[in-house]
Every structure is written in structure tokens, then in C-alpha cells.
């Protein structure tokens, strides 16, 4: 009976994962391996293709663009206001009246668009967290703390299926951006993604599927050692159950890889370091980039984080 309960939990979390995360690993790997027929991603590998990629996305999203047309041509306040909705695209901010961006602002504009998608991803992760049995019964302050500390780790893990050694899918799999291009962006933007590529390439060797990922994400969210938690015990109890479910899932789903559970848990240490470095980089950007504005939700999460 206990194993049956653990399998039911696994199925429940997998369903919640499918419901809340639009680009699954199955879909991402199909796109990356060219198995989606004519539906190939647009490749961004230099500044010219970055501009073309922007048009490519805008053409696909005319109704959304019309809704936000005032934000496209306006200043800082409107840029903050333009952080609305997942379909807004990967670029499309800080354009001047002629529709051409000032070239030196490209990195910042791209960074703003990434933030927009990240904020939407935080909403998706929050909905997923709420579906973990027992999560919404935790103290509300502790729910906030678990998300504040867990969400960037979850988003980092979720980048892995979108990446290979040469680049990453963005904009819901419609765009493939090369690693070399990301590396070529001016400092410190060019340094931001390299650690994620290194981590993802190693993480992908474990060959987790979407149902494994669902459990692993729940384990990360239910970390009882986050600073400031008021009531640790119920969180640890929930995590223990999900850990048992993950262990069983990996045994059944990857019978030939006996150490997979241990290997996966070891990744959590690397993950914390990557997130700490990422947050420090963002905090540095806030000080050095005068034109940078951080999305209010990401500000909330990153303030006093590490």
C-alpha cells in the first residue's frame, strides 16, 4: 500500500507539471533534435539574427503587440508596465519611435525580455508548488519563504532540458539562441549563461524524463533548511514523502542506473552555488547598469536572498 501511495503521488505531481509547464522536456528534445517537421526554431547567432528574431516573434503575436503598442514606443515606466503576459515575446522593449533600438541598449533590452518570461515562469512554479499535497496547508509565511528561495533553483533546473552544448531554446521553443552568441554579449551579460550551460550539459547526462523532473522540482521546493522558516517539521515531512516517491520512481524508470537517486541529490549542492552566483551578478547589475530596471516580482525574490 505504501508503494501504491508513492506512485499515486508521482502521478499527481507529473499531471500538475504537465498542466503548469507549457514546454516539457519531451517537446524541447523533439525540437532540438529536429523531429518537429517544418516547425523548426528560428536561430539567433548574431546581432542581425537577434533583430530578425524579434520580428519573427512580433509577427506571430500581432494581437498581443497591438495591446501593448504604447509600451513598445515609450520609456521606463511603460517598460515596467509592459511586463505583462507570457505571449509578450522575448524582445520588444525600449524601441524608439522609428522601431529601431539603440544598438548599445540591446543587451539591456534582451535582459528585460528574459525577466518578463522569468516572472511568468515564477507564476507557473507557484501554481505547481500549490499542487504539491500539503503545501497550501503550510504557514503562509513559510510558503512565501519556500518559493523565494526555491524558485530560481527550479527555473535553473528547468532550463536544462531546453539546452544542449551549443545553445538554448527560448520563447517557448520558437527560438534557438546559440551559446557563442550569448557568450559574446558585453560584460557582464556575456558571463551570465555559461555556468548554466555547464551545469545543464552535466545534468542532462542523467537523462531524467518529465515525470522524474516533476518529483525533483517538488523536492527542491520543499527544502526545510531555507532561512527564516517558522515551522520546519511539516516541510521536512512533506519532503521526505516526495523523496521516497522520487527514489521509487527512479528505481522503476531507470532500473539500470542504480546510483541515480544519489547523483541527483548531489546536484542540489551545485545548484545552490549557481543560484547564489546568479543573484550576486544581478545585484551587481543593479548597481552598475543605470538604465536597468528589475521586474517587481524578481526584485521581491532577490531582495535579501543571499
Amino acid at each position: 500500500p505504501e508503494a501504491a501511495d508513492l506512485r499515486a503521488l508521482s502521478r499527481h505531481l507529473y499531471e500538475a507539471y504537465l498542466k503548469n509547464f507549457p514546454l516539457t522536456k519531451v517537446k524541447a528534445r523533439a525540437i532540438l533534435s529536429g523531429k518537429t517537421g517544418d516547425n523548426v526554431p528560428f536561430v539567433i547567432h548574431d546581432m542581425k539574427s537577434l533583430m530578425e528574431g524579434e520580428q519573427f516573434i512580433n509577427c506571430k503575436q500581432i494581437p498581443i503587440q497591438e495591446q501593448h503598442s504604447s509600451a513598445l514606443t515609450a520609456g521606463l515606466e511603460e517598460i515596467i508596465g509592459a511586463y505583462q503576459g507570457p505571449e509578450y515575446g522575448f524582445l520588444g522593449m525600449g524601441m524608439n519611435v522609428s522601431g529601431q533600438p539603440p544598438p548599445d541598449a540591446l543587451e539591456l533590452r534582451f535582459f528585460h525580455s528574459c525577466q518578463s518570461r522569468s516572472a511568468e515562469a515564477v507564476r507557473e512554479v507557484t501554481e505547481f508548488a500549490k499542487s504539491i499535497p500539503g503545501f497550501i496547508d503550510l504557514d503562509l509565511n513559510d510558503q512565501v519563504t519556500l518559493l523565494k528561495y526555491g524558485v530560481i533553483e527550479v527555473l535553473t533546473i528547468m532550463m536544462a532540458p531546453l539546452m544542449n552544448k551549443d545553445g538554448t531554446l527560448i520563447s517557448y521553443g520558437q527560438i534557438f539562441m546559440t551559446r557563442e552568441f550569448l557568450k559574446s554579449l558585453r560584460k557582464p551579460f556575456g558571463q551570465m549563461m555559461e555556468p548554466k550551460f555547464d551545469f545543464s550539459v552535466k545534468f542532462n547526462i542523467l537523462e531524467l524524463d518529465d515525470s522524474d523532473m516533476a518529483l525533483f522540482l517538488a523536492v527542491i521546493i520543499l527544502s526545510g533548511d531555507r532561512p527564516g522558516l517558522l515551522n520546519v517539521k511539516p516541510i521536512e515531512q512533506l519532503q521526505e514523502t516526495v523523496l521516497h516517491s522520487l527514489e521509487l520512481q527512479l528505481k522503476l524508470n531507470h532500473p539500470d542506473c542504480l546510483q541515480l537517486f544519489a547523483k541527483l541529490l548531489q546536484k542540489m549542492t551545485d545548484l545552490r552555488q549557481i543560484v547564489t552566483d546568479h543573484v550576486h551578478l544581478i545585484q551587481l547589475l543593479k548597481k552598475t547598469e543605470v538604465d536597468m530596471c528589475l521586474h517587481p516580482l524578481l526584485q521581491e525574490i532577490m531582495k535579501d536572498l543571499y
Binding site: 511586463y83 505583462q84 503576459g85 507570457p86 516572472a119 511568468e120 515564477v122 507564476r123 507557484t126 500549490k130 497550501i136 503562509l140 509565511n141 510558503q143 512565501v144 519563504t145 518559493l147 523565494k148 527564516g228 517587481p296 516580482l297 521581491e300 525574490i301 531582495k303
Partner: peptide, 21 residues
């Protein structure tokens, strides 16, 4: 904590839609 994390709190309480975000 809730005061410092209003949007997260709203997301948890279902009072923020994707459009509000």
C-alpha cells in the same frame, strides 16, 4: 514577510492573474 513579498503572496492566494503580472 508577506508585506515584503506582496506579489508572491498574491500569487499564492490566487489573486494575481497572468495579465496582472
Amino acid at each position: 514577510l508577506k508585506d515584503k513579498h506582496k506579489i508572491l503572496h498574491q500569487l499564492l492566494q490566487n489573486s494575481t492573474s497572468p495579465v496582472d503580472l
